[in-house]
Design a protein around this nucleic acid. Structure first.
Lengths: 102, 102
DNA sequence: AATAATCATCGTACATTTGCGATGATTGTC
DNA sequence: GACAATCATCGCAAATGTACGATGATTATT
């Protein structure tokens, strides 16, 4: 999800982008997913479902949000889907976050 | 805000806490506020309202969220209220975030 | 072609977030 | 004490987020 409310235009684009990244990570499930992917390098969706205390459809929803924020990507290798961190965007996000933390 | 849904118990406490911090920062207005406070060291609420494209009541709400996440604190010096970053908690938050970014 | 496995999407229910105007509450000033 | 200034809170509306079961879609296996 992570849509723009009408007001977001009135903020600095960098702040909007940073908030978008923060929002993508603002749920324990999505943090857990990012940690999983970081450890395993690549990961089948079903494995993620097994690790989380949530229904498959809910996990799929969280994956979708991480994907729409650009933090992860999925490649289809039927019948499963491999997910991995989108390294390019993740580096960008990390830089933005780190800059903010200074 | 930032309440716990019933499911949050099933996650690692550290992930829950980290998500809480991320959520607190998951809005451009709150990021802008944190930046303001970081620059000015201390800041009167009304100054913040002037800087943001939002109504006073809305800003007050964002301040409340940052406060309930522990990231800022306010001290009353009538008729105004001085806000500042809660350095202790902010350091804790930064460490958690940085650890996650590794 | 039927079946099983994997995953996305739909539909629904409920809670939370975001935004504003209006109203209170508090205190200093006149 | 009336008034202005500052800020929180209330009440409301609309949008988002979270969760689940059910259903589709895709493909490998039998």
């Amino acid at each position: 999800m992570i849509k723009e409310t009408p007001v977001q235009r009135d903020f600095i684009p960098e702040d909007v982008q940073l908030a978008r990244y923060y929002k993508a990570l603002a749920h324990p499930a999505r943090i857990a997913i990012m940690k999983l992917l970081a450890h395993r390098d690549t990961c089948i969706c079903n494995d993620i479902v097994q690790e989380l205390p949530l229904a498959q459809s809910t996990v799929s929803q969280h994956l979708k949000e991480l994907k729409s924020a650009g933090l992860i990507q999925g490649s289809i290798t039927p019948p499963s889907v491999k997910y991995c961190i989108n390294q390019e965007n993740w580096q960008t996000a990390k830089k933005l976050i780190e800059k903010f933390l200074q």
